[in-house]
Design a protein around this nucleic acid. Structure first.
Lengths: 205, 205
DNA sequence: AGAATAATTGACCAACCGGTCAGGCTCACG
DNA sequence: CGTGAGCCTGACCGGTTGGTCAATTATTCT
């Protein structure tokens, strides 16, 4: 049984690691792993390049730290789905939670999108492991609801994909959404209404 | 009035430019612009690096050529939408056409996704110009159908976004979709059924 | 055939890349 | 207030990057 060591960070360590991760999130989410440079991360975080590498062993180390921290936040909403709840309300709550993530953490969404888009070289095992297990469980729950006649019969896997696609689209393709809509729109407010309507019509028995 | 010059390519020029663009599509679509290297493109296309730069002035030149060629293919389905057609059938045809693009041209989809994800530095003017105009027109058509009571009342802009998000998701997040579904699935066949069902339920009056 | 033109390449360049390191600075703590 | 651990940096390194160029080879055209 391995003791989890608590690194016990100093005040400065805590502050600078946070600065680096925040700057790195900017850079990685807009350029992808290969397109990002340590110099850019250093500038974005307001530290010198050697100092960045004083707190993280390598570019890869920064990236991996970001990805693992992201995963917890990202998958949390799906864990919140309650099998004993009212099916439609549970689904709509999940959709709402995912849309809120896109609005409040667009950089994280784009980081994840970049990673998957480029073949998920850093987290392919997680996709086919942890994520797949969690999805299978959720598919079971939704399938149960459908079997009980409490939701319209739809493919649960693709229902989940649709929620991911529709909510993350507003973060990942934000420049396109804003360019097409123009100034006088609030994409997320409109999206919330639209998605509520969509899933109610789609899933009502 | 500027005469459009016809470059009159030789047989070898035609073949090698095609080879380069095909290899570059592989590389750019999986690494993004900044993450791609001319060496990779040269290897992917089976030519030497200087020879690649004999046919294209720069890395940027290759990328721009790919993007502009892509745009025509990419926006063609929306042009096919007929205001005089039967609304539901027109929408379902559009969805089907976009899904077919994702299945048959996944690299193009990922190239576009990469570009937009990274802030669309090469085609922002097009997004707010040509694309926005085309969307506005389509929004007008759909809005007309809704006004006539031939489609359920939904926000036309977000209806279009939903079609883009749902269809491109299967190309852009292909590794995730396959990892979650496992081996015994045909994502696109299932998606076609799912999306047909989705939009019929959503848009039926 | 042979001259003109197109195609191809090895060698090279300056700038940039991820990362190292010796040495100086600073700050908490006795 | 001293001292040692923690913090920071300029200078540097080998490898990679986008791109050039002179020289060579292949192709086309008369």
């Amino acid at each position: 049984m391995s003791e989890e060591e608590a690194p016990r960070l100093t005040r400065i360590q805590q502050k600078n690691r946070d600065l680096i991760l925040d700057g790195a999130l900017d850079v990685f989410s807009t350029h992808g792993f290969r397109g990002a440079t340590i110099d850019q991360i250093a500038e974005a975080s307001g530290l010198s390049k050697p100092n960045v590498l004083y707190y993280f062993a390598s570019k890869d180390d920064i990236y991996r730290t970001l990805l693992t921290a992201l995963l917890d936040v990202w998958l949390a909403p799906m864990r919140g789905l309650d099998p004993r709840g009212e099916p439609m309300a549970e689904i709509l709550t999940y959709v709402r939670a995912k849309l809120d993530l896109s609005r409040d953490y667009p950089r994280e969404s784009r980081l994840f999108a970049n990673e998957v888009l480029q073949g998920a070289p850093h987290l392919q095992p997680i996709l086919g492991g942890q994520l797949r297990d969690m999805v299978d469980e959720t598919v079971g729950i939704i399938g149960g609801w459908i079997g009980e006649g409490r939701l319209a019969p739809v493919d649960p896997h693709h229902l989940i994909f649709s929620i991911w696609a529709l909510t993350q689209h507003y973060a990942d393709f934000e420049v396109q959404v804003r360019a097409v809509l123009g100034e006088d729109h609030d994409p997320y407010a409109e999206a919330e209404l639209f998605l509520n309507n969509l899933y109610q019509r789609m899933l009502a028995v």
